[in-house]
Computed example of a mutant assay.
Amino acid sequence: MNTKTNIDFASIFQFAPIGMCVSENRIILACNAALATMFGYHQDTLIGASFQILYPSTDEFERTGARIAPIMNAKGSYSDERIMKRADQELFWCHVSGRGLDKKHPHAAGIWTFEDLSAKRTVSAELTPREREIAALLVEGKTSKLIARQIDLSPRTVEMHRAKLMKKFSASTSSELVHKLLGIVH
């Protein structure tokens, strides 16, 4: 017996258990209830807002956008874990994945998902925007040389930031730092 099921994509989007949004030029065109709840905003506040509202600083918003573009141009999609900001200014780790709808213009239109990782990983030390960016890349397993190349810094500068992170997290090795950033306690 072949039965045809009507699928209500608007309801699927709205009630998905993960934060979702559709964007155009880094402006939120539509978002679901899970995204609004995760960030502590009403959906109406987010619709029409720049993604910048979700970042800890303007610099992080700009640098992340610049970092994402070439990766999306090459792969068509992007995924990372980064520190984001709720409406009440609380910082939290978030897994972000997205896909551009126009391969030639990665920010022109996109579909994005956001997963709150705060239950697994807390932001426990006061970090600068650059330290947050480097911490997110360290968690991805990148070396200082790769991080330096990706964010256009010298490897020495990245090592300096890594050393500051190690001090802030009382880590004696790079491996211990990554474990602490991930919230893994030994």
Score class of each variant (00 low, 15 high):
Gly40Asn: 14
Asp44Gln: 09
Gly98Tyr: 00
Trp93Val: 00
Thr58Lys: 15
Ser79Glu: 09
Ala30Met: 10
Ala34Lys: 07
Met84Arg: 03
Tyr78His: 10
Ala36Trp: 03
Arg82Met: 12
Gly65Trp: 04
Tyr41Asn: 05
Ile47Asn: 04
Gly76Ser: 10
Glu24Gln: 14
Glu24Leu: 10
Asn73Phe: 12
Ser97Leu: 07
Ala49Lys: 07
Gly65Cys: 05
Leu91His: 08
Ala74Pro: 04
Tyr55Glu: 11
Asn32Phe: 01
Ala66Pro: 05
Met20Gln: 11
Phe61Arg: 03
Asp102Asn: 15
Phe39Arg: 05
Val22Gly: 00
Gly98Asp: 00
His95Tyr: 09
Ile68Ser: 01
Gln14Pro: 00
Ser57Lys: 04
Thr45Ile: 13
Glu62Trp: 08
Phe51Thr: 00
Ala16Cys: 09
Gly48Thr: 04
Thr37Cys: 14
Pro17Gln: 12
Arg99Cys: 10
Ile68Thr: 02
His95Gly: 06
Ala69His: 11
Gly100Glu: 02
Lys85Gln: 14
Ala49Ile: 04
Gly48His: 06
Val96Thr: 09
Arg67Pro: 02
Ser23Thr: 13
Glu90Lys: 13
Ala87Gln: 11
Met20Gly: 07
Ser77Ala: 10
Ala69Thr: 14
Ile53Met: 07
Cys94Asp: 02
Leu29Ile: 08
Gln52Leu: 11
Ala30Val: 09
Gln89His: 15
Glu62Ile: 11
Asp102Phe: 15
Gly48Ile: 06
Pro56Trp: 06
Ile27Thr: 13
Pro17Tyr: 06
Ala66Gln: 15
Ile53His: 04
Ser50Trp: 03
Ser79Arg: 07
Asn73His: 15
Ala49Asn: 07
Met38Val: 11
Gln89Ala: 15
Asn32Thr: 04
Pro70Glu: 06
Ser23Phe: 05
Cys21Ile: 06
Ala30Pro: 00
Asp59Arg: 13
Asn73Val: 14
Gln52Pro: 03
Glu81Tyr: 02
Gly40Glu: 10
Gln52Phe: 03
Leu54Pro: 00
Leu35Val: 08
Ala36Tyr: 02
Leu29Phe: 05
Cys94Thr: 07
Pro17Trp: 07
Leu29Gly: 02
Gln43Ile: 09
Arg26Trp: 12
Ile47His: 01
Phe61Asn: 01
Ile18Leu: 08
Phe92Glu: 05
Asp88Leu: 09
Phe13His: 01
Gly65Glu: 03
Gly76Leu: 05
Gly40Ala: 12
Ile27Arg: 08
Ile28Lys: 00
Ala74Phe: 10
Glu90Cys: 09
Arg63Trp: 09
Ala33Met: 09
Ile47Phe: 10
Asn73Leu: 15
Arg99Phe: 11
Gly48Gln: 08
Tyr78Cys: 02
Ser97Glu: 14
Gly48Trp: 10
Phe13Asp: 00
Asp59Glu: 13
Ile71Trp: 03
Asp44Trp: 06
Ala66Asp: 13
Phe61Met: 09
Arg86Tyr: 14
Met20Arg: 13
Pro17Leu: 08
Met72Arg: 05
Leu91Trp: 12
Leu54Thr: 01
Arg82Gln: 12
Ile47Val: 15
Asp88Ala: 08
Ile27Met: 10
Glu81Gln: 14
Met84Gly: 01
Leu35Trp: 01
Lys75Gln: 12
Thr58Ala: 14
Pro17His: 09
Cys94Val: 12
Met20Phe: 14
Ala33Asp: 11
Gln14Gly: 01
Glu81His: 06
Tyr41Val: 04
Trp93Leu: 00
Phe61Leu: 06
Val22His: 07
Glu60Ser: 06
